[in-house]
Simulated scan of single mutants.
Amino acid sequence: MTQPRFDVLCIGNAIVDVIADATDEFLEEQGLDKGSMRLIDAEEAERLYGLMNPGREVSGGSAGNTAAGIAALGCKTGYIGQVSTDQLGDIYRHDIEAAGVEFLAEPRDDVGATARCLILVTPDAQRTMNTFLGAANQLKLGAIDESVIADAGIVYLEGYLWDLPEAKEAMEKAMDAARAAGRQTSFTLSDAFCIGRHRNDFLRLIDEGKIDILFANEAEIQALSGEDDFDDAVAAVCSKVPTLVVTRSEKGAIAVEGGARARVAAVKIDALVDTTGAGDLFAAGFLAGKAKGLELDQCLKLGAIAAAEVIQHYGARPEQDLKALSARVY
């Protein structure tokens, strides 16, 4: 098989993050569950934005964050996500291309406003996300070029994109094109609330063999499996996917691949500032390791290093040199 144009091609919701400090009392006043993600409409986005403390704007979205992390680790990366022709759309495209990611979806003027996520960070570094999907959820089948998919070693997709029928069809088209080309498909479950909406579909993708690498955190793997015990949840899923990766915050992470199982401890940090993007950057490190042909435990170590970097500052994009930080792994 020829060398692919992209080591990893990421597909997801193109969202501009607006990150601001908040108190527990503010969350209670607004009826928000700390640590959750909810979908909001344009009116609620404007209302909540008006009540937030001054925020920092940075291009985000789960798979977009992962793409930026993969590029920061020296891999060739592309990204497909829908933005509008508005100012936030211009910001998003500039930011992700500046991070070294090739942006592969044309902005459109018929999809409403570019998406934004209002992220409230409490003093314990937990983030509560309020997402207006706007243009991001208008990804069309035509945005998926099968020749581009076939030219990527790994195609990575986020579960958050599963909420509208055509976006879901676009993701399945990408999965089928990757499989037809002999490429790997990686999928992140994204959020326990997302699993609550789409559990049957996600289980179907697994049963049909459309996912080669599955990412989850502890709550997500339990929600997907229906098991309350962590070990039972992992056991219920790991035999159904070639590679399962589960992050556990301060407990580190595990990966199960065939008969092999690997674990990694969480990397020690100076200060926990903002957990936004921790899972996204863990996936970036792991997938970069896969693209480089590293062993399973080395892939986990790269993931842990990337996740540790991003939680020590605001925003979900790396600020330090990830290649320098990860040099000791390989």
Results as ranks from 00 to 15, higher is better:
218 E>R: 05
195 I>G: 03
239 S>F: 10
202 F>L: 13
220 E>G: 01
266 A>P: 04
230 F>Y: 02
201 D>I: 13
205 L>N: 07
253 A>W: 08
260 A>P: 02
260 A>E: 14
252 G>A: 04
234 V>H: 03
217 N>A: 02
230 F>T: 01
258 G>Q: 13
203 L>N: 04
197 R>G: 04
245 V>S: 08
190 S>E: 03
194 C>D: 04
190 S>I: 02
252 G>M: 03
264 V>K: 07
200 N>E: 15
225 S>D: 08
266 A>W: 05
263 R>P: 01
268 K>H: 11
265 A>V: 03
250 E>G: 03
258 G>N: 12
186 S>F: 10
230 F>N: 00
248 R>K: 15
213 I>E: 01
237 V>T: 01
206 I>L: 15
253 A>L: 10
222 Q>F: 07
249 S>E: 13
189 L>G: 06
233 A>R: 12
242 P>M: 02
204 R>L: 09
179 R>L: 09
230 F>Q: 01
215 F>M: 12
248 R>T: 05
232 D>V: 07
194 C>E: 04
245 V>N: 09
224 L>V: 06
244 L>A: 08
196 G>C: 09
245 V>W: 06
204 R>K: 15
210 K>A: 04
211 I>H: 06
234 V>D: 03
260 A>R: 14
264 V>G: 05
256 V>P: 04
233 A>Q: 09
186 S>M: 10
204 R>Y: 07
211 I>Y: 09
252 G>Q: 03
237 V>I: 04
225 S>P: 11
267 V>D: 10
212 D>E: 12
211 I>M: 09
259 G>F: 12
209 G>N: 11
206 I>E: 07
198 H>W: 09
193 F>K: 00
215 F>Q: 08
193 F>P: 00
230 F>W: 01
180 A>G: 06
253 A>N: 09
241 V>N: 01
264 V>Q: 12
218 E>A: 05
245 V>Y: 05
265 A>R: 13
195 I>W: 04
185 T>L: 11
267 V>P: 02
221 I>G: 07
190 S>D: 03
222 Q>R: 15
205 L>I: 06
258 G>D: 12
230 F>G: 00
238 C>Y: 05
245 V>F: 07
259 G>K: 14
257 E>S: 15
235 A>Q: 13
259 G>Y: 12
265 A>D: 14
233 A>Y: 11
204 R>A: 14
197 R>I: 02
269 I>Y: 13
231 D>P: 04
234 V>Y: 03
268 K>N: 14
227 E>F: 00
211 I>P: 04
183 R>V: 07
200 N>S: 15
228 D>M: 11
179 R>V: 08
187 F>V: 03
194 C>N: 10
239 S>V: 10
194 C>T: 06
260 A>Y: 07
232 D>H: 10
262 A>D: 02
181 A>W: 00
269 I>V: 15
268 K>Y: 03
217 N>T: 02
260 A>W: 06
181 A>H: 00
182 G>F: 02
249 S>Q: 12
178 A>T: 09
183 R>C: 11
231 D>R: 14
262 A>V: 02
191 D>S: 10
199 R>W: 06
196 G>T: 08
178 A>I: 11
261 R>L: 07
250 E>M: 13
226 G>E: 08
188 T>E: 08
260 A>N: 13
212 D>F: 11
240 K>S: 14
200 N>W: 07
231 D>A: 15
210 K>I: 04
224 L>M: 13
228 D>F: 05
213 I>L: 06
247 T>Y: 01
